[in-house]
Write a protein that binds this DNA or RNA. Sequence first.
DNA 1: CCTCTGCGAAGAGGA
Length: 890
Amino acid sequence: MNLRGTIIDVGEVRSVSTQHGERDLVETTIRPERLDGERAPDDREITVTLWGKWTHTAEHAAAGMDLLVTNPEETEFRGERGYATTSDSYVVLEPDFLVDVTDVRSWVQCPRMYYLNKLSGVPLAYPVVKGTIVHEVFGDLLRGRDLDAAVADRVEAAGLELGLLGREAAEVRDEVRRNAAAIEGWLAQGTLTEEDEWRSEYTLISPTFGIKGRADALRRDSPVELKTGKNTKRDPRFHDKIQAATYALLLGESGDPPNTGTLLYTKNAALDRSEASGDLSPAKEFSVGRGLLEFVVRTRNEIAAAEAERRVPTGYEADAKCEWCFEQDTCMVVSGRLDQESKAGQVGTAIPAEEREYFEAFYRAIEDERRAVHAEYRKLWEQSATERAAADRALIDLEPLGRRQLPDGDWELRAGVPDGAVSKLREGDVALASAGDPIGGDAELGRIQALGDEAVVTVDEPLDLRRLDVYPSEISVSRQLTALHDALLKGDSERKDVLFGRREPTFREVTETFVDNNDAQNTAVRRAVGADDFALVHGPPGTGKTYTIAHVVRALVERGERVLLSAFTNRAVDNALDALRDQGFADIARVGTATGVREDMRDVRLERRGEPNDRAAALRSSPVVAATTATCGSRVLREESFDVAVVDEASQLTEPGTLAAINLVDRFILVGDHQQLPPVVQSGDERLATSLFERLHDAHPEAATMLDRQYRMSQRIQAFASAEFYDGALRPATPEVAGGTLDDLPGVDGERLDPELRQGVRFVDPDGRREGNANPAEADRVAAVVASFLDAGVDPDDVVVIAPFRAQVAEINRRVDVAVDTVDRFQGSSAEVVVVSFVATDDLDGPIFEDTRRVNVALTRAKKALVLVGDAAALESEPFYARMLDWARR
DNA sequence: CCTCTGCGAAGAGGA
């Protein structure tokens, strides 16, 4: 049994005499979540006594933090019931904060190193890349692959990085082989090779201890950690031991933890006798006792407490010696730039106060987003009991259909998907595959290769595939943080002057004509080409943003500039490339994962696998490199530089997200529309939810060009959006666009269409009832409206239904055979006929209706016909929606 | 009360 609650008060450490002698204790008061298996009343407070070394955790605890005690004992003191730790107890602070195993390791080395790693990331460096390759080969050997084949394959797969680092494949293969030979030799020792005793790359997530990580391998259920460096001491390094011990702790979450751990220092075997004295055996086994595990938990608690209080470590917390530390320079620079106290000292001058304020506000906001990701992890275990609730972020009740081992040693699992199962999971996603329990049971991380009636997943180790869960990732959060670091601490001051409003952006005059039939587009290209600092292109729906982007990129390349083409989503990056190719330009390197890049762009995708020099040249010689902003923050692209960045969907990007791209360039062009949907921010932070595009647009309207001619909507359809969102400035580009009707579509007979639906814009009130986030009666009416369009000869591919909630999307999907999606997912697309279902009845309470930009997106998807289906009374209750009804009923 | 795209899956090392 575990006791868990929110801390109300933490007492002082005191020493008392017990039958075991003098012992320390701290009394804490908590508000328990549950007592005797029941939910505890909100005003119930109890005392929890933390004994012995757990007073260390108490010293880091503060009111407001969550506290968890495993196996407590019940106590009674003056009639008051309380709890205390026992010799079987662990005390966990802020268990919802998921600490990485490697974070425990670096914190033990020096808490400041933990902070620096998070802030500035691990750079592209040869020892790191080589280390990764050796680990992959280790996994291959455990899965029975031939050494030489594995080495050749893994080195080839890392071609791009090795090339960027100026390494030759043969040299790397030799070095990796020497390291791997040590592993092979060790594996070959007698009984150790029995297959069942080994597992490679094991993902562990602990709800109890608030720790997650991935063990290199398990041998007889005991963790084995591989290190590519050398260590000729008899004992493993302390922080390496801590890393392995943390895996041991996680393995003991259910049942007994293993009592040994092993560290494999592969470079030892590669060393010459003359190079080193001491213990050259690569494998070092050590015992994992209760005391070590408690130390791990106490350390983890220090991290969680520091994160909860947002304390910045100084380095004084550790007794590590700064003069031996590899991060000493970074440490001093960060301290100097941010005016932080640190044991290593400061160098350089501090950034201005306003920049520090900016840094701190965004640092905090990004860390809040990290907590939102942690909340996603929590759903893995909190919802596994209530399987219905898990339905949308997991596929359950899969029917295992078989497995086979692939040539590279991975396993391919197949399972039948139950009829009608819906989830967020999509092909190409990384997901947690399990036999039913994603936590604690048989579970493996894998990639979804195919998802239809059958799910196909590739994983490291085989299992019966019965369930697939969304696997949350902190990568995008981490990359925003490093982008923030790079922009403020490393970015040049001229750039920061314009970002912080200390200087106006300047432009060179360009008189060349780039687009001869659209003045705004032509001006936008001229301003983009002539920008010394940045330019903004404001592109309302249907105004030819992508086309304009292609012109901008071409014009820049013709001037000899190297261009980084980026956007928030893969889809927008590929659309821009499509337009660029349409204009006859194809010298492109598209950087991104194979599953992220659209099929027809794969031919220009930069393959990382290959001969190192060749791969590096492929990236560096490309005049145009295209990638999502998230990928711009990756280790490889962070090392590259360009003249200009052109960033699409910039209004959907957080500021740090935009920084990831513009950090790599001298000048930048942001393209977007702040009247459409803003960045998705789970924590709801205002500053994070405002894009850099919008902030710069407000601060420097003169740097923006609005594309004012739209090629999509009929006059009737665009009128409301133009008046409400674009000051009436948005107009149809041609008379044909303005007067577009369904009769223009081939095969459509206007006569057969319900006269009411010929209006271009219609409002229909089905008098439905909202039930949760769906409205079945409204869904019926939507289906009827869709049917009349189809009866009139409209191609089903030309009809789209949009609803605010996924629940209503599912409801409508059951009734029609046309595309149905949420507003948010349909941004960026359009269709001849659009039917919008508003769902709400009675009133419009709820965040989804508050942001009218969502309505702008919904209404501006339609080209020739738009039907609004909703409850008149509810819609009339808000002035904005009332104006919308007036327009629709006209 | 909601919307939801990214991400080499994490972690890889220097002495």
